[in-house]
Computed example of a mutant assay.
Amino acid sequence: MADNLVGKSQQNGIPGVYGGNDVNGNGVVGETNGSGIGVFGQSRTGNGVVGRGWVSGARGVVGVYADSEQAPPSSAHFVIAASAGVWGTTSNEAAVGTDPMLNLKTASGVVGEVSLPGPGFGYGVLGLGHKDEGVVGWSEHGAGGSFHGAAGGIIANSEGSWGGQFKSAKRGQIRLVPREVDFGTDSEGNPRPKLPKFAEAGEMAMAAKGGGKCSLWLCVKSWQAGGGAVPPTDARWAEVKLGAAFNGTETT
């Protein structure tokens, strides 16, 4: 960009920067070749940055991290372009690092972080659903979601906190979407769903076999890759035994 631009408004209702539309269809473009910030919005009484998409399939705010100059695919998994208030994409060609303390990968499409002095101040990510789910996790090859609660060294009682909270006043707090799977039997004739051999301990699967009936299974031992003379070991699953079923009575 040829010149730097600083936008500041001295009057309520008047934006500091307004972008109409350039020849490429962009209202505002922020670019930096150094360690600075492409676009930074700050407000004492309002919103620092607001993005709005008017048509189906548009996004209010788009954030992309890529370690190459090639643009990542925008909606590869959606038949119809997904509409979103915020759309974050990460497209890594190089190997992704893992944080040695949290043991979590260091690349994410969207990251939410609470940076405050103690517990109870806020949420890293908050999903609100008025008629639909507050948070949905979907994965083509991995688990739909993963939740970690690490002990907090700066918390006064050092007890840490939950990996995730799920609240609903009208429906179940969380839903595992049943997946249709084939069933077989073990050596004693007990029904066994055909579940993934590549799974990590703690994963849960709701397996269904027609008629809306389903059963809950927990991965109790992670798979091992093996190597050399040591053969790989498949993940082990165990059924979560439930009590007797009964009809719901409350309307929503």
Rank of each mutant, 00 (worst) to 15 (best):
M1R: 00
L5D: 11
L5R: 00
V6Y: 09
V6E: 14
K8Y: 01
N12P: 02
G13F: 04
G13P: 06
I14K: 03
Y18I: 02
G19I: 08
G20K: 11
N21W: 07
D22N: 09
D22F: 04
N26G: 00
G30I: 11
G30Y: 10
G30V: 12
E31M: 11
S35W: 04
G38I: 06
S43D: 13
S43Y: 05
R44V: 07
G46T: 15
N47L: 05
N47A: 10
V50E: 13
V50I: 14
G51Y: 03
G51F: 03
G51D: 10
G51L: 08
R52S: 10
R52Q: 11
G53R: 01
V55M: 06
S56I: 12
G60Y: 03
V62L: 13
V64Q: 06
Y65T: 11
Y65V: 11
E69K: 02
E69C: 03
Q70I: 15
P72S: 10
P72Q: 04
S74Q: 12
S74E: 15
S75G: 08
H77I: 15
H77R: 12
V79L: 14
V79A: 13
A81S: 15
V86F: 11
G88K: 06
S91V: 00
N92L: 08
A94C: 10
A94Y: 07
V96D: 14
V96Y: 04
G97N: 14
T98S: 08
T98A: 09
T98K: 01
L104M: 15
L104G: 10
T106D: 15
T106C: 07
G112N: 12
S115M: 13
G122T: 05
Y123E: 14
G124Y: 06
G124Q: 10
V125S: 06
G127V: 07
D132L: 02
V135G: 01
F147M: 08
H148D: 12
G152C: 03
G152K: 00
I154Y: 03
I154K: 01
I155H: 01
I155V: 07
N157W: 03
N157S: 14
S158I: 05
S161C: 10
S161E: 09
W162Y: 12
Q165A: 04
K167F: 08
R171H: 03
I174P: 00
E180H: 09
V181C: 06
T185P: 00
T185G: 02
S187G: 05
G189K: 01
N190W: 10
P191Q: 07
P191L: 09
K194S: 13
L195Q: 07
A199H: 02
E200Q: 11
E203R: 01
M204W: 09
A205M: 12
M206F: 13
G210T: 09
K213E: 13
K213I: 03
S215D: 05
W217N: 01
W223Q: 02
Q224Y: 09
A225I: 13
G227F: 05
G228P: 01
V230A: 13
P231F: 03
A235C: 05
R236K: 07
R236H: 01
R236L: 10
E239S: 08
E239L: 08
V240E: 06
V240I: 15
V240N: 02
G243W: 01
F246C: 03
F246P: 00
G248A: 13
E250F: 07
